[in-house]
Simulated scan of single mutants.
Amino acid sequence: MPRHKKSCAVPIASKISEESEDDTSPASHWQNIIECLNQMLAKLKENFVPPILAQKIFTQNFAYMNVQLFNSLLQHPECSTFSNGEYLKSGLDELEKWCAEAKEEYAGSSWDELKHTRQAVGFLIMHEKSKISYDEITNNLCTILSVQQFYKVCTLYNEGNNNEGVSTDVISQMKLLMTADSDQNDDGSSFLLDEDSSIPFLVEDITDSMKIQEFADVKPTTELADNPEFQFLLE
């Protein structure tokens, strides 16, 4: 797993306490994000940006959100809680709804870019974690997370509402697997996702997606020539 190069954004969990002080809805942050996405989509359509390029732009935005959210969960204990998991789940639901409304034509694979966060949140909001085996977790729940990543989620998980974490057997099994992993980085940060600001695409993808313009209603040059500003057409 690539190493993280930049620091994470403000812990997501801290926003909950800020919202309670400001007496604003916990959903306000997610609604602001949705509004930004809608404004961006409207601007792209207004300027006839090819859908394939719009897909790349939104995919990159969702990838950035995934890095910030996921790395916050793995670095800050106050983020790895049951209540914060529910808060993130409500936001993920809003983002999934937006992708469905924007349709694949513009959203592309944006929703798939949130897989790390989605699976980590799925673990946080799961009940009876102590009854789940390691095989069930890796084969069904957190299939995309590495051993190091899931270990961090489990060990940072803050037990609340009598919702205890995974069993000691699961923790021991993960420790053994990490010890046997010769590729593990010495600095212990191999579990963090890396930011990538690039938006790779082929020029052919853009040209192939360009809509064929209809010129049937364009005035012939003979009519334009009557306008003094188009006298150069007669020269």
Rank of each mutant, 00 (worst) to 15 (best):
G165D: 00
L177D: 12
Q184A: 15
L156F: 10
S198F: 00
S189K: 07
W30Q: 00
N163C: 15
K103Q: 11
L37Q: 07
A216H: 10
E136Q: 09
A107P: 06
A27C: 09
E113M: 14
P77A: 02
L156A: 12
S172T: 14
D169L: 03
A42C: 12
N61P: 00
T179A: 10
T207L: 14
D22Q: 14
P26M: 03
S109V: 09
I52S: 01
I206V: 14
D226N: 05
P11A: 01
K43G: 13
K15G: 09
I144S: 14
S90N: 10
D93W: 05
S172G: 01
C36F: 12
D196K: 04
W111A: 06
S189F: 01
L141K: 06
Y87E: 02
Q31N: 10
F62Q: 05
S20W: 03
N38F: 04
N66T: 11
Q184N: 08
L88V: 13
K131Q: 05
S133D: 06
A107Q: 05
D205Y: 03
V166L: 15
D23Q: 07
E94D: 10
A9K: 07
K89F: 15
L37A: 08
Q231C: 06
N163I: 12
D194V: 01
G165V: 05
S209L: 02
N66V: 03
L141P: 05
E101P: 01
E35M: 12
G122S: 05
Q173L: 11
C142I: 03
E204L: 11
R3H: 11
I57C: 05
K152T: 10
D187L: 07
L202C: 08
E18S: 09
P11W: 10
T168I: 13
E96W: 02
N84H: 08
D181Y: 09
Q68C: 09
L193Y: 08
D194A: 14
L141A: 15
A120S: 06
S80Y: 09
D205L: 04
K5I: 14
D169P: 03
H116G: 05
S198L: 15
L92V: 06
V218I: 11
F232G: 02
H116Q: 11
C79S: 08
W30F: 10
N32S: 06
S80I: 00
S28E: 13
Q148V: 02
L114T: 09
A42V: 05
P51E: 02
V203T: 06
Q231G: 06
Q148T: 03
G165I: 00
L192S: 00
E235F: 13
C154E: 11
Q148E: 15
E204S: 15
I144R: 03
N162Y: 09
F230N: 07
K89W: 13
N47E: 13
E18Q: 10
L37G: 04
N185D: 14
D196W: 11
C8G: 12
K56W: 01
S25R: 01
K45D: 13
L177K: 07
T59I: 13
T143Y: 00
W98S: 07
E19D: 15
I125S: 04
Y157F: 12
L192A: 04
F58Y: 00
I12G: 01
L202D: 12
E229D: 14
E136C: 02
C142N: 02
